[in-house]
Amino acid sequence: MRLTFTAGAFPLIILLMTGCKPNATDRINNAASITSISRLPENPLEMTPMAVSLQPKAKTMSTLYGNSIAAKRLRDGAYYAAGSVLYLVTWKGKADPDWFGAHIPDRVTAIERISFDQNGQKSYTFFKGPGWDPALDLKKNERLIIILSIPIAKSP
């Protein structure tokens, strides 16, 4: 009697244990992390996030990053000074698997870099991301104006 009980209980316990959700091992958003784009002079993700935007038509989302000179704008609102480096990283958006009601970044479509030299001269560089969509036609002159006029995400 006792033996059959113990013998019966064991598989049950093991079943319960294995029935539990396995610990999700990899929760890192690797697809959206910048790891494989060569020629990038610096990793924009290491810089200070300054603004965010959504492009509903293209279903993309972007974050504007700045180096420490550019990031001064967060505090004093002044225009980008000489030596500023800005990056606009754009991702394809995807549904958040953990929350119906949210979109999170998927693969990078494009990375755009604007730098201000010591004389305040701007230069623009474009890097194609693994999620690049050829239908998006980014024209250099337009992009400069758009990126430089993105409103900063202000917080008190």
Partner: peptide
Amino acid sequence: TRPLDIRDL
């Protein structure tokens, strides 16, 4: 959050 991996390139 499923975070980005931020590394020094």
